[in-house]
Design a protein around this nucleic acid. Sequence first.
DNA 1: CCCTGATTCGC
DNA 2: GCGAATCAGG
Length: 168
Amino acid sequence: MDLSWTDDRVERLKTLWMEGHSASQIAAELGGVTRNAVIGKVHRLGLSGRAKPQPQAARPRKAREPSHPMRPVAPITIGNLAVKAEPMAEAAPEVAPAPAPVPEVVPFERATILTLTEQTCKWPIGDPSRADFFFCGRKSESGVPYCTYHCRMAYQPAHDRRRDRKAS
DNA sequence: CCCTGATTCGC
DNA sequence: GCGAATCAGG
């Protein structure tokens, strides 16, 4: 296989680069080259200045106000899915309060700070310091900061977890 | 420590 | 022309 800079590969490089993919992403995509190779080529091609993600119009909304009522633990996530968390042992009181219309699994919408609105769930997913951070983004009641699923997590009675004594 | 792109320079 | 090594930054 020809892993040199054939016209074809150069074309893909140009395209991907202009689309805003990172050098390492492109390198992985093309295969057989390192990100350094990609960057080097990019420069030699003279297309160093890439497409900026947009000057970006003003944020749709202030989108910031979360600050959870009580810092919950990070939700369990698998790829793009939210997996229903364990129903929390048997803290269950008498009355069965849970019609629990929450689906077992619902895809995130991967909202960014720019796409959050009054009606999107602002539950943070991932490490905010990382580029792949995003917000849940599922539909929420207007004015309610989280989707149904995350509301349950956010407004839980702070885990009254008393560690059970060692099982005899 | 993870990642980014930019630059250098021997090949 | 190529790209590893390095640099500078987030």
